[in-house]
Design a binder for these strands. Structure first.
Length: 505
RNA sequence: GGGCCGUUAGCUCAACUGGUAGAGCACCUGAUUCUUAAUCAGGGGGCUGCAGGUUCGAGUCCUGCACGGCCCA
């Protein structure tokens, strides 16, 4: 700690020195005309090694990532949102005063602005020859090691900004995440879907099986919940007359953290009036293959060493058939006792012995066997309280989940729009709740009332954006695609206390 | 919640069966006008996560706690 403390004091002292010399280390604005990518795009092909383009003036800025000082000149690299670029500063070009300013006061980690022209070094690297430069922000803390980057997972997750500075692939990963979201919007807007919003604070939760976060609303003195899904409000839009809606937003589930679960994550849900789950299936294939192709130029990605092909059509397999094939048990015809005995043989403990839980546990046993993008079809009614009964078998529903690498990426149904059936399904859920299943649905009477006014036949879809992005960025855990994941705040508090002690000294 | 592994300088990592805690990067001083993990010479920097215990002696062995990672629930 002492080392860091001394280094920070040294930097703070330098900042005071700069101010005394009339140099503001935190100026207000810099006129950045070119990003590092602009410069590469404009000049990389035009220049051969050793060539210069003195009349092409550019102004760029970024964080200093490395410095190679040669006495009366120096090379350094800056990093901006688009990448890294080499800069060359020479005493006889910027004048003694500016050069001394650079040499004495610019460190790795500082943010600087440079004006000059492009050239290519002897070794062929595109470089900016500095005619003028300015400190834009002095860093007080040192950067992690330039060669090995930042590896400490704790710092990576707790101080993502440091991770993004030190590890270029981290910044790129989040850029890709937001490109996925942008492409998703483009695709849906293009097809006439309207982006809408629904409440985050809700009186009753629904739309998923999950324990909610509880909070308190002072004005009515009632407990409220953070939404666990956007489904039930989006369907109210359909009742109200919207025909194609979607929402991209955070949902909250008060459950464990794992490589594929985060208590706070981002979903995209859409609802399409007059469509059924077959239409939604096609839409899902189109949407995902479009995104993958736009990003990579191909539908194939490598995830953790396995090639995954997102080209359409995706494989379709009935949940009933798949479990029957793998485990020899029929989740529609066989008794609860039969299913329980299969589970026991596999050493699976079932705390709540409802038929729905038994089916879910059976699926858990075999889900890993689905690797390539697959639509798992026609789930039993017991595990699908919001889906319409299958037109060919009322014990099943018209539902699919998109499974990739054993993970659920999307969930969709022909939406249940029969208010009487929906009410009965809620009653079943309430029974489970009373039996101790905290993840079962709550009775949502207003939602039933909405259905009583009439909802057109509707297809709906939910996609877990974080999980999708994991596949596209080859991320082993969901925390890698959430910029600021949930961390235990305890040690963070200690760090802040230490900071306060320093300030007092 | 359970099991296993980890925590050493700002960062990345060493330190044999217990015997004076080291290197590289970063930082400071000096040299250096095409370097790119620049180079060369010199310098400062450690409550070995925290608290106990065993021992002549603990980074190293034992116990507890904190935080993290992986696996399981």
């Amino acid at each position: 700690m002492k080392v860091l403390e001394e280094l920070r004091k040294q930097r703070v002292q330098e900042i005071e020195e700069l101010r005394r010399a009339g140099v503001e280390p935190y100026p207000y604005k810099f006129d950045k005309t070119h990003s590092t990518a602009d410069i590469k795009r404009l000049f990389d092909e035009k220049l051969g090694a050793g060539e210069i383009l003195e009349e092409e003036k550019v102004s760029t800025a970024g964080r200093v990532m490395s410095i190679r000082d040669h006495g009366k000149s120096a090379f350094f690299h800056i990093k901006d949102q688009e990448g890294r670029l080499q800069i060359y500063i020479r005493k006889n070009a910027v004048g003694n005063e500016k050069y001394q300013l650079f040499k004495k006061y610019v460190n790795v980690g500082d943010i600087v602005g440079v004006k000059g022209f492009p050239f290519k070094s002897k070794t062929g690297e595109l470089t900016i020859f500095v005619e003028d430069f300015q400190i834009l922000s002095k860093a007080v803390r040192p950067l992690p090691e330039k060669w090995h980057g930042l590896k400490d997972k704790e710092i990576i997750y707790r101080q993502r900004y440091v991770d993004m500075i030190a590890n270029d692939e981290s910044l790129e990963r989040f850029k890709l995440r937001y490109k996925v979201i942008r492409l998703m919007r483009e695709f849906l807007n293009e097809r006439g879907f309207v982006e809408v919003e629904t409440p985050t604070l809700v009186y009753v939760t629904g739309g998923a099986e999950a324990r909610p976060f509880v909070t308190h609303l002072n004005v009515f003195d009632i407990d409220m919940y953070l939404r666990i899904a956007t489904e039930l409000y989006l369907k109210r839009y359909i009742v109200g007359g919207f025909e194609k809606v979607y929402e991209i937003g955070k949902v909250f589930r008060n459950e464990g953290i794992s490589y594929k679960h985060s208590p706070e994550f981002t979903s995209m849900e859409l609802y399409w009036a007059y469509a059924d789950y077959n239409d939604i299936m096609e839409l899902t294939e189109d949407l995902i293959s479009f995104i993958v192709k736009e990003i990579f130029g191909t539908t194939k990605v490598i995830y953790q060493g396995t090639e995954i092909d997102f080209s359409k059509p995706f494989r379709r397999v009935r949940m009933r058939d798949f479990i029957l094939e793998k485990l020899g048990v029929d989740i529609v015809e066989d008794s609860d006792e039969k299913m329980l005995s299969v589970l026991k043989k596999q050493g699976v403990d079932v705390p709540i012995k409802s038929r729905g839980h038994l089916i879910n546990k059976l699926w858990d046993l075999v889900e890993d066997q689905v690797v390539q993008p697959t639509f798992l079809l026609d789930h039993p009614v017991d595990i699908s309280p919001l889906a319409k009964r299958h037109r060919e078998d009322p014990r099943l529903t018209e539902r699919f989940e998109l499974i990739v690498f054993g993970r659920e990426i999307a969930n969709a149904f022909s939406e249940l729009n029969d208010p009487v059936d929906q009410y009965q399904r809620f009653l079943e859920q309430v029974k489970l709740r009373e039996a101790g299943d905290e993840e079962a649905h709550m009775m949502d009477k207003d939602f039933v009332r909405a259905l009583e006014y009439g909802m057109p036949p509707t297809g709906g879809l939910g996609i877990g954006i974080d999980r999708l992005v994991m596949f596209l960025t080859d991320s082993p855990t969901i925390r890698d695609v959430i910029a600021f994941p949930l961390v235990n705040p305890k040690s963070l508090e200690e760090e802040i206390e230490y900071e306060e002690e320093v300030e007092e000294k």
